[in-house]
Design a protein around this nucleic acid. Structure first.
Lengths: 336, 336
DNA sequence: CTGAAAGCGCTTACAG
DNA sequence: CTGAAAGCGCTTACAG
C-alpha cells in the first residue's frame, strides 16, 4: 500500500506538507497543493487509519452497547444510529452484552483497549465500574431510549410514564374500565410504563387490580403469547389490554386469535413503540409512537457535540410521543 | 492510559518481554511472566489496538457491506454475523451502500483506507473496480445469501431457483394452477426465484402467463401491498400467490384483507425466507425457510478460514432449505 | 530466556 | 509557506 512518504517523494515535498493538504489545513501554496492532490489521485493513496488513530490518540469510533438479543424496535434504532454515525465520519464498534455480570465485565475490558471517542447505550448496564470508567476517562455517553435515573450521561427518550398513561387513557376514554396489563420487569422502562398504567387508572378512579397484570421475562412476540395465555388462564374479566411493547401486543393478538377471540371485537389491544410491522398486522395495531429516527439522529448528534465541545454538559431529552389510532381498539361494549 | 513501557518498567523487564507474555508467546521465564501478569493486572493495562494494528499491518476487522435500507431477513442475518464475528475476535466496520455508482465508489474508497482483513457482502456490488480491488489485494470476501455468478469469492446461500420451485410445487400439488407471482428485479435472487417459478410451472405443464406476474421495486411489506394491488387491479383470475420474500407476502396478505379477500380461503399465499414474524402473522405464513443462523455462522467461519489459511480456495455453498407449512395455504377450490 | 533497536505510517510542534 | 525531527505504542528480527 502506498504511504504518505511515497506521495511526498513523488510530489517532491515533505511528508508534513502532504499531511497538511490531506487534512485540509491552510498554509500550503496552491502549486504544491495541486501537485500533491494530483499524486494522491495517481497513486490511489488513502491515509492509514491505524497510524492516524495512534498518533492522535483517538479512534474516531463510538462504541455501541447492545443487548445480546435485540428486539425489532432496537433493530430499527440501531440501523438509524449506524447511518448517522457514518455521516459524521465515525466508525462503530459493537459490544453485545448479556444479562450477566461476566458479560458486562467482558464488555468493559474490551472497551478499555479501544479508546472509543464515545459510547451509545442501547442497553442498561448495571456494573458500577462501567459507569466509573466512563466518567473517570471523560468518555461521553448517551443512553438511547432509556430514561435512566442517576446515570450521569445524556439520554434521549420519551416520557415512558406518560406514554403508558396516554395509552391507557385512550382505552378509558372509550369506556373501558377492566384493563389488563402485559408488562415485564427487565429494564427501567418496564417499571416506568407500569407506573404510567397505575397513574392512569388512579386518575380515572379505577382501582388497581393485581390479578389483571402479568409480567413476562422479556419483550418478544413469543413472550406476548405466553403472557396472554397466562392472563386468559386466570379467567378474569376484562375488555382491553395494554401491552407495554408492540411485540408483546402482537404476540397477545396472535394468542387471542388462537383462542378464538376477536380483536378488537372481544378485546381491544394497544401497544407501545410503533415498530414498522405494527402498521401491517391484522388488525393494524393501535399504539404509542416513539419517534425512532429522530431518536437515533439525536443520539448521534448529541454524542458528537459531547465529543467535540469543551463543556461536557449532560442533558436529558424527552421527545414527544404520539398516539396512533389504528384498528385494534374499539369502544367498550362488554367484558370477557 | 498506561502503556506497555510503563508495565515493563514496573515489572523491571524490557518491553519485548512484556509483549511476549501478553501475546502468549513461549520462552519467558515463569518468574518474569508472573511478575508481568501481576503488573498488567495492577495497572489495568490493555494493549493499544491502533498501535498493534499499525505494526502488524492488519486491522482484525472485517467489513460488512450492507444495503442502505436493509430488510428484516438481512437484519436477522446481520445480527447473527455480528455475534460470531465477536466470538472470533474480529471487529466489524459497516459500509452502507445505496443503489448508485457514487455510493459504491465511496464504499470502495473507505475500504482502501481501512485494510480490513476480509469482507462480508450482504449486498451485491456492481462496480468492477470493487471486485478488482479485493482480488488484487488478496482480501477474502464472502457473499452472504446470494448466489452470484462470476464473482470470485466464497458464497453461502440456498439454491434460490429450487427454493422457488419448491414453493410453487407445493401449491401445484394442492391443485392450484392459476398461480400469480409477486417478484422484483433487484438483486440476482429476484431473477433466480422467478426462474424457479417458471420451471415449476413448466414441469407441471402449466403455461407461463405474463399477466400473472408483477415486479415491484423493492422487497418491503409496502411493496407487497402495492404489488398485490396491481395484481388485483388487473382483474385476472388466480387462486394462489407466490411472493418471493416473506415481507412481500405479508404485504400481499395485508392488502388482500383490505380488499375483503380471505387468506387462504380465497387466495393461498406462500412466501420465502421465513423471517421471525412469519410465524406470528394472521394467518401464519407458509413459506420456505432459509437457515439464517447457520448461514450467518458459516459466513463468518468461512471468512475466518480464508483469512487465516494459506490456500485461498473459494467455495460455493448451497445450504438446504425447508418448506414450512403453516396457515396461509389451502387446497384449490376456486379461482377469484 | 532476554533486551536494545529499528520500524510501522502518521501528526505536530518547532525553526526557519 | 515548508521541512527535519520527534514521538505515538506496539512487534519483531537480531544478537547475546
Amino acid at each position: 500500500m502506498v504511504s504518505i512518504k511515497e506521495v511526498a517523494q513523488k510530489a517532491g515535498v515533505s511528508v508534513s506538507t502532504v499531511s497538511r493538504v490531506i487534512n485540509g489545513k491552510q498554509n500550503v501554496s496552491p502549486e504544491k497543493r495541486a501537485k500533491i492532490m494530483q499524486m494522491v489521485k495517481a497513486t490511489g493513496y488513502v491515509p492509514n487509519r491505524a497510524a492516524r488513530d495512534m498518533v492522535m490518540k483517538r479512534s474516531f469510533t463510538v462504541g455501541i452497547i447492545i443487548p445480546m438479543t435485540f428486539n425489532m424496535f432496537q433493530r430499527q434504532l440501531f440501523s438509524d444510529i449506524e447511518h448517522h454515525l457514518e455521516d459524521f465520519g465515525y466508525h462503530s464498534s459493537f459490544y453485545f452484552v448479556a444479562m450477566s455480570q461476566e458479560s458486562e465485565e467482558a464488555c468493559l475490558r474490551r472497551l478499555k483497549g479501544e479508546k472509543t471517542d464515545g459510547v451509545i447505550l442501547l442497553h442498561e448496564i448495571e456494573l458500577p465500574e462501567f459507569r466509573e470508567y466512563l466518567e473517570k476517562n471523560d468518555i461521553p455517553s448517551v443512553i438511547a431510549t432509556f430514561e435512566k435515573e442517576r446515570w450521569k450521561s445524556t439520554s434521549i427518550h420519551i416520557s415512558e410514564n406518560e406514554a403508558a398513561s396516554a395509552a391507557v387513557n385512550h382505552l378509558i376514554k372509550l369506556g373501558h374500565r377492566e384493563i389488563a396489563l402485559l408488562s415485564g420487569k427487565r429494564y427501567s422502562f418496564g417499571r416506568q410504563r407500569l407506573q404510567g398504567y397505575v397513574n392512569a387508572l388512579e386518575s380515572a378512579g379505577i382501582p388497581y387490580n393485581e390479578s389483571k397484570v402479568v409480567f413476562v421475562d422479556s419483550y418478544s412476540i413469543s413472550d406476548g403469547m405466553s403472557g396472554m395465555k397466562e392472563l386468559l388462564d386466570r379467567k378474569i374479566s376484562f375488555s382491553a389490554l395494554f401491552a407495554i411493547t408492540d411485540e408483546l401486543a402482537i404476540g397477545a393478538m396472535r394468542y387471542l386469535k388462537d383462542r378464538g377471540y376477536q380483536v378488537p371485537g372481544d378485546i381491544s389491544v394497544v401497544g407501545c413503540d410503533d415498530i414498522e410491522i405494527s402498521s401491517y398486522t391484522i388488525p393494524r395495531l393501535t399504539t404509542i409512537r416513539q419517534p425512532v429516527s429522530e431518536m437515533g439522529k439525536m443520539s448521534v448528534a448529541m454524542l458528537h457535540s459531547l465529543i467535540t465541545s469543551e463543556s461536557k454538559m449532560n442533558v436529558n431529552i424527552a421527545l414527544p410521543f404520539t398516539l396512533i389510532e389504528r384498528e385494534s381498539v374499539t369502544e367498550y361494549t362488554k367484558n370477557i
